[in-house]
């Protein structure tokens, strides 16, 4: 009896400890970045262009670039991904072909991001002649995000009770009508949350945009999708490792890191709030 009780306490203690350690790690990272970066972050930092070889100034173009490329990614990956998820969840008949499709998508999710980058070069930069541009980078990131969006959207669609579909069909709805009016609205919070989380990850990726369109310094903002762009993760990478005056720019690196983390957090927060609000409607 005492032994059972002891084992229970031990087990709970171990699990709690793991949770604490995880939170602790997160706190350490945030603490580190915040303390070393907050000194640098200011309004000017956010809206100014980099000056004097990046040793001073701001990271405005990097912020804009990241946002720009994420928008391209969104436009490409969300409609395609959600449609694929709807097909897999609602229309595909269980069989070898469907299993093959599903396995392929899962495998795609495991492909290293640098491979995506190289693939993007071959397909978008050279093959389709988009050149190194926001478009190429955005599409490459889109390919990266696609499996994630399909997986989470399918999950969201799976949570819709079968009775909603049947209820609509029993009233004389066609399959698409029942999906559009009953299934999608219910699955929307899940789909949106998954999508935003996927996109926030894409926003922070470096490898896929490396050869497909990002640049360390551009004198002006990209004027069209065919222009190159600056991006936060790449900017951070260069400042931390490649810059000729690494010691001097370290604070700027931390500042960039802080902004990037803040951006990702904001996107995640948006996802959470959206899901909460939409859930309440149902």
């Amino acid at each position: 009896m005492r032994l059972k009780r002891f084992r229970e306490i031990f087990g709970i203690g171990l699990l709690s400890l793991s949770a604490v350690i995880v939170v602790l790690i997160l706190c350490v990272i945030i603490f580190d970045i915040t303390t070393k970066g907050s000194g640098v972050v200011s309004w000017e930092f956010l809206v100014d262009f980099p000056k004097e070889g990046m040793t001073r100034g701001g990271i405005f173009p990097a912020i804009i670039g990241t946002i720009f490329v994420t928008i391209i990614t969104t436009i490409f990956s969300i409609p395609l991904g959600v449609s694929a998820a709807i097909y897999l969840s609602e229309y595909a008949k269980e069989g070898r072909l469907t299993r093959l499709i599903r396995t392929s998508i899962r495998n795609l999710a495991g492909v290293p991001s640098i491979v995506y980058g190289l693939f993007g070069v071959v397909l978008f930069v050279q093959g389709l002649h988009f050149g190194t541009s926001v478009l190429s980078a955005g599409l490459t990131l889109g390919l990266l995000t696609l499996p994630w969006i399909i997986a989470t959207s399918e999950e969201a669609l799976k949570t819709v009770p079968q009775s909603y579909r049947e209820g609509a069909l029993a009233l004389g709805a066609t399959k698409w009508q029942s999906i559009y009016s009953n299934v999608l609205p219910y699955a929307l919070p899940g789909i949106l949350t998954g999508s935003i989380l996927g996109l926030s990850r894409a926003a922070g990726e470096t490898a896929p945009i490396l050869f497909t369109g990002v640049a360390f310094f551009l004198p002006k903002l990209p004027g069209s999708v065919f222009d190159q762009f600056m991006a936060l993760p790449y900017h951070l990478y260069i400042l931390s490792t490649q810059h000729h005056a690494i010691e001097q720019v370290r604070p700027l690196a931390y500042g960039t890191a802080l902004v990037l983390v803040a951006l990702v957090f904001m996107m995640n927060l948006t996802a959470i709030i959206l899901r909460y609000k939409l859930r309440k409607k149902f």
Binding site: P161, S163, Y164, E166, G167, A168, A170, L171, S181, N182, P185, Y186, K281, F282
Partner: peptide
């Protein structure tokens, strides 16, 4: 028409 076992009003 059909009425199901568990009431399933649409959201």
């Amino acid at each position: 028409g059909m009425v199901f076992q568990k009431p399933n009003p649409f959201p």
